[in-house]
């Protein structure tokens, strides 16, 4: 539990952080909440020689609710949980954040850190996937927007370039007839998801499903949309029977993982169960 030596830099602005990133390249790691990085360093599973601490950057800590919701990457889970404005606009965020870790983790951990680290069992990636968020990254060439659908590449790997910093998460507000939900089976030691499922639905006036986005986490190498399930839902009824049938549409090709907490087979079965539960809960929130 003793990390190897590293240099530490505190960045006071995004520009300064980018400059440090450019300077130190692959040797450097961005330090956000540190709840994933520091334990990995203590176990020497990660040994970056440079840490760039972006905690001092005040401009990255913000929640703005307008036509859309924009959240600064360094906004802590606790801030997300405690924002009444956010809760009104996107209640699913608080619902999910409340299931993350413990108070210590929520006080330090950040939304941007969770997304950029891309832990396959983290909770928020599934939620942002289901909500169809857009991420803003800043690099030496300026800023660019990345759809959340293009963000998660593989286990612990995103489409962020090594010289880029994730700065903002933009999410659509919950409109009329829309609902979202996040449910998870918790791994009792780590608090991460063995299977987590997030769902967003838009219902027609007649109760049929107009649109849906469903994503899972914890079960496979990366957070993933379940498009077969979405397709099975859209145009159909929002009844329990219809949702159960749609949840069974999870592809057998979907890549899942097994470990000492749950086998691959069990996770496959639970993906269907939690997907159904998340969709039903989202429908309830929508109606």
């Amino acid at each position: 539990m003793i990390p190897s030596a590293f240099e530490y830099y505190a960045a006071n602005s995004v520009d300064e952080a980018l400059k440090l990133l450019a300077e130190h390249g692959d040797e450097a790691k961005i330090l956000a909440g540190g709840h994933s990085l520091l334990p990995a360093m203590k176990l020497r599973l990660a040994a970056p020689t440079v840490l760039i601490d972006i905690n001092p950057i005040a401009e990255l800590r913000s929640i703005n609710v307008g036509d859309k919701v924009t959240i600064g990457a360094m906004t802590t889970y606790a801030s997300l949980l405690n924002s009444a404005e956010l809760k009104a606009a996107l209640p699913v965020i608080a619902e999910a954040v409340d299931q993350i870790g413990d108070p210590q983790v929520r006080n330090r951990g950040t939304i941007g850190g969770a997304l950029a680290h891309a832990d396959p069992a983290a909770d928020l990636p599934a939620v942002i996937l289901a909500l169809g968020g857009t991420l803003t990254a800043q690099g030496p060439e300026g800023t660019r927007e990345i759809s959340i659908d293009d963000f998660f590449v593989d286990m612990l790997t995103t489409s962020l370039e090594p010289n880029e910093l994730l700065t903002t998460i933009t999410l659509p507000k919950m409109g009329a007839g829309e609902g979202a939900s996040y449910v998870k089976m918790v791994q009792p030691a780590s608090g991460y998801a063995i299977v987590g499922a997030a769902a967003w639905v838009k219902l027609n006036a007649d109760g049929t499903v107009a649109a849906a986005r469903v994503a899972i986490t914890g079960a496979g190498p990366k957070p993933t949309r379940l498009e077969e399930v979405e397709n099975a839902l859209v145009g159909g009824a929002s009844s329990e029977e219809a949702v159960t049938a749609a949840s069974e549409a999870v592809s057998d090709e979907l890549e899942l993982l097994g470990d000492i907490h749950a086998s691959e087979d069990y996770r496959r079965a639970m993906v269907k169960v939690y997907t159904r539960r998340a969709i039903l809960k989202a429908i309830k929130a929508a109606s």
Binding site: Q187, P188, A189, I260, H261
Partner: peptide, 22 residues
């Protein structure tokens, strides 16, 4: 949990579940 090679798979508190009061 040990694997068949004798590696302790439940080697950290991330994998060995000591319950909290909650």
């Amino acid at each position: 949990v040990y694997d068949e090679n004798g590696q302790l798979l439940s080697g950290t508190l991330m994998d060995y579940a000591v319950p909290t009061a909650a």
